[in-house]
């Protein structure tokens, strides 16, 4: 309606004048483009078994972690004096046995990969821009790899006679 009045008074058509401000029949507001529209940037195929493997890993590692983590918490916090007994000597005593070494190693790897994959999913779902998504995932992968490697190193090279 305002476009009509300006046309009448100034004599300039709606295309030439005032195109930036008022929206009209010839100048509709831009609509937000749907994301799934196929463009030149759309990759041809993103098929592969990685997502399936990740999905399956989450379920299987989850089942194993229930046993590992609950057992760990029970031993560390509840049984035999609870949290007060934990000290260097206690850890050293436990890690003298390969059973507990493997238990902790398995728990470390599974928990880190399970949590890392879960966070990867969260980032994929919630990051809005591709660059944000990329850098958040890089941060996540770095932290995961660092923690897993450090933990593995400690479990394998643990020296109870350290001074």
């Amino acid at each position: 309606m305002s476009a009509d009045t300006t046309t009448a008074t100034s004599g300039i058509g709606p295309v030439e004048g005032g195109a930036g401000t008022a929206y009209g029949v010839d100048n509709p507001a831009p609509v937000i483009e749907a994301p799934r529209k196929r463009t030149a940037k759309t990759p041809r195929s993103t098929r592969g078994n990685f997502e399936m493997a990740a999905w399956l890993f989450m379920r299987l590692s989850g089942i194993v972690l229930v046993v590992l983590v609950l057992g760990h918490l029970l031993i560390q916090l509840v049984l035999d004096g609870g949290v007060s007994k934990i000290g260097f000597a206690f850890v050293a005593g436990r890690w003298a046995s390969p059973f507990w070494q493997i238990w902790d190693l398995l728990m470390l790897w599974l928990a880190m990969l399970h949590g890392g994959n879960g966070l990867r999913t969260v980032i994929n779902d919630y990051a809005e821009r591709d660059t944000t998504r990329f850098w958040l995932k890089m941060l996540l992968y770095t932290a995961t790899v660092f923690t897993v490697l450090l933990g593995t190193l400690v479990i394998f090279t643990f020296d109870p006679n350290i001074r």
Partner: peptide, 14 residues
């Protein structure tokens, strides 16, 4: 099934 095995296929279902 192969089509739905896509990165944005069934595995994105939460």
């Amino acid at each position: 099934l192969e089509i739905l095995n896509d990165k944005d296929g069934v595995w994105r279902c939460r």
